[in-house]
Amino acid sequence: MTGKTYTLLGADRSPYESVTPGILGGHRGGRIYGRLDCPAALRAIAKGGYVKNRVFFANEAIAIAAGFRPCGACLPEKYALWKRSREAAR
Rank of each mutant, 00 (worst) to 15 (best):
M1H: 13
T2W: 14
T2Y: 14
G3V: 12
T5E: 10
T5P: 12
Y6M: 02
L8P: 02
A11V: 00
A11S: 12
R13M: 01
S14A: 15
Y16P: 04
S18T: 02
V19H: 15
T20S: 14
P21D: 00
P21N: 01
G22S: 03
I23Q: 09
L24T: 06
L24K: 05
G25C: 13
R28Q: 13
G30I: 03
R31H: 08
G34K: 01
R35P: 10
L36S: 09
D37S: 12
D37V: 10
C38W: 00
C38M: 00
P39F: 04
A41H: 07
A41Q: 11
L42R: 15
L42D: 05
L42K: 14
L42Y: 09
L42T: 06
R43V: 14
A44K: 07
A46I: 10
K47G: 06
G48H: 12
G48D: 03
Y50A: 06
Y50P: 06
N53K: 14
N53F: 11
N53I: 15
R54D: 02
R54E: 03
R54A: 06
F56I: 06
F57P: 08
A58F: 13
E60G: 07
E60V: 12
A61Y: 09
I62T: 15
A63P: 08
I64R: 14
A66W: 00
G67W: 00
R69G: 15
R69H: 13
C71Q: 05
G72W: 00
A73V: 13
A73G: 08
C74A: 03
C74H: 05
L75I: 02
P76L: 07
P76H: 05
K78F: 04
Y79S: 04
K83I: 03
K83G: 06
R84Y: 10
R84F: 07
S85C: 11
S85I: 14
R86N: 08
E87W: 07
E87H: 09
A88R: 03
R90C: 12
